[in-house]
Design a protein around this nucleic acid. Sequence first.
DNA 1: AACTGACGAGAACGTGCGTTCTCCAAGTAC
DNA 2: GTACTTGGAGAACGCACGTTCTCGTCAGTT
Lengths: 176, 176
Amino acid sequence: MPLDADTARTRLLDTAEDLFYSRGIQAVGMDDLRGGSGLSLKRLYALYPAKEQLVEAYLRRRDVRWRGSLAAFVEQADDPRDRILAVYDWLGEWLREPGFRGCAWVNGYGELGATSEVVARAAREHKQAFADYLAGLVTAAGLPEALAPQLFLLAEGAMVGAGVLGEPRLAEHARA
Amino acid sequence: MPLDADTARTRLLDTAEDLFYSRGIQAVGMDDLRGGSGLSLKRLYALYPAKEQLVEAYLRRRDVRWRGSLAAFVEQADDPRDRILAVYDWLGEWLREPGFRGCAWVNGYGELGATSEVVARAAREHKQAFADYLAGLVTAAGLPEALAPQLFLLAEGAMVGAGVLGEPRLAEHARA
DNA sequence: AACTGACGAGAACGTGCGTTCTCCAAGTAC
DNA sequence: GTACTTGGAGAACGCACGTTCTCGTCAGTT
């Protein structure tokens, strides 16, 4: 029962995301991905000729999903200032999800940033896009530009703090 | 020319710190440590019977050095509020150091937190100690307790932001 | 029925690495 | 000098893993 290319790719990326995020990238072997996705090794290598490319695809797909989900949530608020607050509401929910283990890009960077330029760049671009997004919200709210990096720092801090300490904190609400 | 145990241990930890931090833990093999330290493999295993214990020792020694250096710098300021600002001055200097590659504990956690309970605990304890230290500074300055976690988030955000983006930012000064 | 091509299952290959073992030189005690 | 110990250099072992290869099976075509 051959699977068409699209669902095969989706299924592979789903298991990759699941395993890479929960166990760490290097801790997941190609056999784990094969078992998890139900694809054959041959099929897997036809889709991505090397593990690094699969890792990159994982990070990129998660990036569009992550930022898309954030943007969709934020846009539910009308007032530009409420939108900024909504970022932290959304973060708070995310940090509380079961299986939360910190920021996938920071983790990937810590693990492979020194080894793989591909991973380092994906992490950098994701963080840059997030910072730019926050800056856009700040100017849309008519707030001073200097606020944007501070908001970024608070958000990043919340993610990594929640990841290693296991504490979803909301103190950053008071900030805005 | 046999080396006495203390200098051998110091030399090993020095190379371990150098290599683990700059390349990532899993990317450094025991042979690299041997070459870098000039010790024999036998000696190395006599000091730490497994790599994981060496990793733990690396994280712990760096922890006392890091917090010690921070505390020494902060104590140069007399005014309790200046001391809080000094934390960020010190951070700013650290982020600017050549070879800075983010927070060793966050990197280690991202790499091995899911696999090694030892590493996860070391990272957690380090972050907790840092947060507690900040809380101490806040109460010593007579500021509201709720400020402490916010300061923590700003500091963490600055470290990871500087690590992956390569940007030492000082916007957090405006904060305090 | 015979041929062909695609695909899955999984063995096989090569390499890297954590850990242990072997061998040998040098120092010490008698 | 000889027995004994210590420690260094590096080979060896076992395993895990990324990648490739082999083989068998089944669909489609004539």
